[in-house]
């Protein structure tokens, strides 16, 4: 049902080309699939398996290890509230409880309108800005209960176009211009790097 689109296949091949071994592209490609569909579908994972040259089971094996990959549909906005130590000390757990009441769901659940999924997450590296949260991996620092309500209202009303739907991570991609590309160095390429070799030649001559 949801294999990668032709545009995404082009992108996928560009990404695979950057790694000495195609399987190294697996996590970036899974993100690409999640960006396309909002979660990982079986068809997309099977397609990625074909592109990378592994079995669909191996793709699932990797995908299922990582927290960010969703095997079931989630809300348009995934709200990750940190309750780890620095946030706990400054009201992270209370903020999570407030969010549960405001949205009527428990952590891991999605609102019936499909807009919000709430998650109780581990440290997201904003400890001096506690309590903090992320919406689709965009940060909100030192957030009060009132600010949380405002944020939810704004998201529901479509007033936050700075936050892309769930699945989209970086909106800027790396692109290596072909004429500037140094190229992959495979494990089989056992030659001494040119600049190391020339330095030792110079040393020998000196």
């Amino acid at each position: 049902m949801a294999r990668l689109s032709p545009d995404n296949v082009t992108l996928a091949l560009e990404i695979i080309g950057r790694y000495p071994r195609p399987k190294s592209a697996l996590i970036p490609l899974l993100h690409l699939a999640q960006e396309q569909d909002g979660h990982l579908t079986d068809d997309a994972m099977a397609h990625i398996a074909e592109l990378v040259g592994v079995t669909p089971a191996e793709v699932l094996g990797t995908a299922s290890f990582y927290e960010m990959f969703k095997m079931e549909p989630v809300g348009r906005y995934v709200v990750n509230i940190c309750t780890n130590i620095a946030c706990q000390l400054l009201g992270g757990e209370e903020l999570l409880e407030h969010a549960e009441h405001r949205l009527g769901v428990r952590p891991g659940q999605t609102t019936p309108d499909g807009l919000f999924t709430v998650e109780d997450v581990e440290c997201i590296a904003a400890c001096t800005e506690a309590p903090c949260l992320q919406v689709n991996y965009r940060y909100f620092h030192r957030i009060t209960h009132d600010e949380f309500d405002q944020l939810v209202d704004d998201l529901a009303a479509g007033r936050r176009d700075d936050i892309p739907p769930h699945g989209t991570l970086a909106r800027v991609r790396q692109h290596i211009p072909p004429e500037r590309r140094a190229g992959c160095v495979l494990p089989e390429d056992t030659a001494t790097p040119v600049w190391i070799a020339s330095a030792s030649t110079e040393e020998a001559e000196a």
């Binding site: 996590i27 991570l169 140094a182 190229g183 992959c184 600049w195």
Partner: peptide, 15 residues
Amino acid sequence: TDYSIDVVLTWGAGA
């Protein structure tokens, strides 16, 4: 110079 290298941005998925 003769120094050439690709720096590849890659990223994790929560672990």
